[in-house]
Simulated scan of single mutants.
Amino acid sequence: MHDALFNYLKKFKSEPLTDEEKTLIRQVFTPFKLRKKQYLLQAGDHCKYFAFVVKGAMRQYSVDDKGTEHIVRLGVEDWWMGDRESWVMKTPSNYNIDAWEHTEMLLVTRASILDLLNKTTFIYEMMRQLDERNNIANQRRLTSSISATAEKKYADFVACYPVLVERFPQHIIASYLGITKDTLSRVKRQLLQR
Rank of each mutant, 00 (worst) to 15 (best):
D65A: 05
A137Y: 00
L17S: 10
D115M: 03
W87F: 15
L24F: 13
T91Y: 03
P31I: 00
D45N: 15
E101N: 09
A150V: 06
A148D: 15
D98M: 02
L34R: 08
Q27Y: 02
S86F: 08
L130V: 14
D131Y: 15
S112W: 01
A99T: 06
A111Q: 06
E77Q: 09
M89N: 13
S14M: 04
V63E: 11
V72W: 05
V53C: 13
D115E: 14
E104C: 00
N138C: 03
D131H: 08
L107K: 07
L41T: 07
T120F: 07
A148L: 09
H102T: 05
T149V: 04
W79N: 12
Y39E: 09
D45K: 15
N94A: 07
L34E: 02
L40V: 06
Q42S: 13
F32P: 01
D98Q: 00
A111T: 11
Y39K: 13
K119Y: 04
R59E: 02
V76K: 13
N96F: 15
F122I: 10
Y61K: 02
R73Q: 15
T68A: 08
K33N: 12
M89Y: 08
G56Q: 08
K119M: 11
L114G: 05
L142V: 07
D115Q: 14
E15L: 12
R110A: 11
L40Q: 11
A57I: 05
A150K: 10
M127K: 13
E85C: 07
N94S: 10
S93V: 07
K66M: 11
K13E: 12
M127N: 09
E85D: 06
F29T: 10
I25P: 05
L116Q: 09
V53L: 14
T143Q: 12
D64K: 07
S144R: 12
L107Q: 07
F52N: 07
V76A: 04
I97T: 02
T18C: 10
D65G: 02
D131W: 12
F29D: 00
F50H: 07
D45Q: 15
E132K: 06
V28P: 00
K22T: 09
S62A: 14
R141Q: 10
D115K: 13
S112M: 01
H46W: 03
N118G: 15
S147I: 00
S145Y: 06
L130K: 15
R59A: 01
A137L: 04
T120Q: 09
S93C: 03
N96Q: 01
Y124D: 14
